[in-house]
Amino acid sequence: MASGSGSTTAITTKGLGKRYGSLWALQDCTISVPRGRVTALVGPNGAGKTTLLRMLVGLSRPSTGELAVLGRAPRQDPEFLSSVGYLAQDVPLYPRLSAEDHLRLGAHLNEGWDADGARSRLAALHVPTDRPVATLSGGQRAQVGLGLALAKRPRLLLLDEPVAALDPLARREFLTTLTEAVADGDLSVMLSSHLLHDLERVCDHVLLLSSSRAQICEDIDDLLASHRMLLGRRRDLTDIERSLTVIKATQTERQTRLLVRCDGPVLDPSWEITEVGLEDIILGYMGQGDVPLGGHLNALEEVR
């Protein structure tokens, strides 16, 4: 890392949990995300993605466990607050104010505010900065929201479903702005989304939450390198489970298809072995239910 201040991890949590009433929105979440990564935060609805992001930015407090953001617990001081950029779901902005108003607002509220950078980005995308933001398109509003978050020159940027409501072109523009900002300097990003294809281009790390727990938290390249799809005639799985971690097994009358995690090559020649895309890996884990991070549970799914 170029500017070596602080810790080498952007986000560290230990046994982090959040309870609303008797319901756990997030439970026993222990993760570590290195600095400089663009992390995809994925998982089904209600898996605790928003809950996690809100705790990271200090909007809500954990019920259990610990968390460190850029090496320190989120807290109410200007230094912490300006080091973390946050764009909430649905891009909340003051509807009657213009983008320019928002930028001036930000300049009054933050130290080291980069209004010029934000203005030139918005100008390049032809986003009108003098009209009330309520009159802008969804894509333009998202750009204003991202511009505000980036103008803080944050070291960690948290984005909650930023592209969900955007058309493909606006989505591409949004992600381009984001990746350019990452290329510009020491910036870690975590963004949640359901659009795995977008995430796969933009992200190099993935955090999967499912059933309120963290199922995967690692570099996408490592994930792709360690997972394979095995296809072969139907057989008993006890043997293979000794040497491999079966993430998901699909058995038909004649065939067995396995998503496995393996550290070395699979030697058994009776399997046809193929590489697996990120989406299939994630879907494989999502079908899992309660598997602790790095756990070894063999879900067996019988298909007629």
């Binding site: 809100r54 930015v57 200090g58 909007l59 109410q76 001081d77 200007p78 230094e79 607050l81 300006s82 973390v84 950029g85 946050y86 909430a88 779901q89 649905d90 909340p92 902005l93 003051y94 509807p95 930000g106 509220l109 933050n110 130290e111 505000l148 803080k152």
Partner: peptide, 16 residues
């Protein structure tokens, strides 16, 4: 109602 509290309270000014 507008959700703007999450914008206002994540700027470089404490909530207090």
């Amino acid at each position: 109602e507008d959700g703007t509290h999450s914008l206002a309270w994540t700027q470089g000014v404490t909530r207090a």
